[in-house]
């Protein structure tokens, strides 16, 4: 059916003598030739593939698979080692922290003791100095009182003399003493 239609189309459109009648696909005289060369081709390709190409590619793929598996195993190993190292590091860090805390505590205690000692010493010194100073101040105050008394008596005697009356020194002293006490 297809032959007839294409043959008709071919007749209508083209008049070239080279044109094959209808479909060249249905020209049975060339079938033997095509089939022969096809079989030759397929056999050649089959032998090339099965003898050389496919085993080689299979080997390459297997080798690559092996390499990848090895590398993954190695990576796994390294990862484990890294994890162990990290754990050891963490542990060392924690130990160091505990030790540091202990040392700090100790130092703090020591310093506290020293500070207390120094404070006590300083307090004692301060109180000693204070007592001494108080004594000195008392002495100064007493001598000042005495001086005031003497000055007052002298002044009183001078004032009495200036007023023109003469009074006994003992009397004046008594009056001044009474005034000062009052």
């Amino acid at each position: 059916m297809a032959t007839e239609t294409t043959a008709a189309a071919g007749d209508g459109l083209a008049t070239s003598p080279e044109t094959a009648p209808g479909m060249p696909q249905l020209d049975f005289s060339t079938f033997g030739n095509q089939i022969f060369w096809l079989i030759v081709t397929l056999v050649v390709i089959y032998f090339v593939l099965s003898r050389v190409a496919l085993p080689r590619i299979a080997a390459v793929l297997a080798e690559r698979q092996g390499t990848i598996t090895n590398d993954i195993a190695k990576a796994e190993d390294l990862k484990k080692q890294a994890a162990e190292a990290e754990q050891a590091y963490e542990k060392a860090l924690a130990d160091a922290r505990v030790a540091a805390q202990k040392i700090a505590e100790q130092t703090r205690e020591e310093i506290k003791g020293q500070v207390a000692d120094a404070q006590a010493k300083a307090d004692a010194e301060i109180s000693a100095k204070t007592a001494e100073s108080e004594k000195e101040i008392d002495a100064i105050r007493a001598s000042a009182m005495e001086n005031v008394e003497a000055v007052a008596k002298d002044t009183a005697a001078a004032v009495v003399a200036a007023l023109g009356s003469s009074a006994d020194q003992a009397e004046i002293d008594k009056a001044v003493d009474a005034r000062m006490k009052g």
Partner: peptide, 30 residues
């Protein structure tokens, strides 16, 4: 004019010479 030879590209022809296409002829198929 328009000339269509859409099927000519499928013609099996000998590569060397013009003889008939036998079984072992070296053709464009080869």
């Amino acid at each position: 004019g328009l000339v269509f030879h859409p099927m000519d590209q499928f013609i099996v022809s000998p590569l060397f010479g013009d003889g008939p296409v036998g079984m072992f002829t070296i053709t464009n198929v080869t």
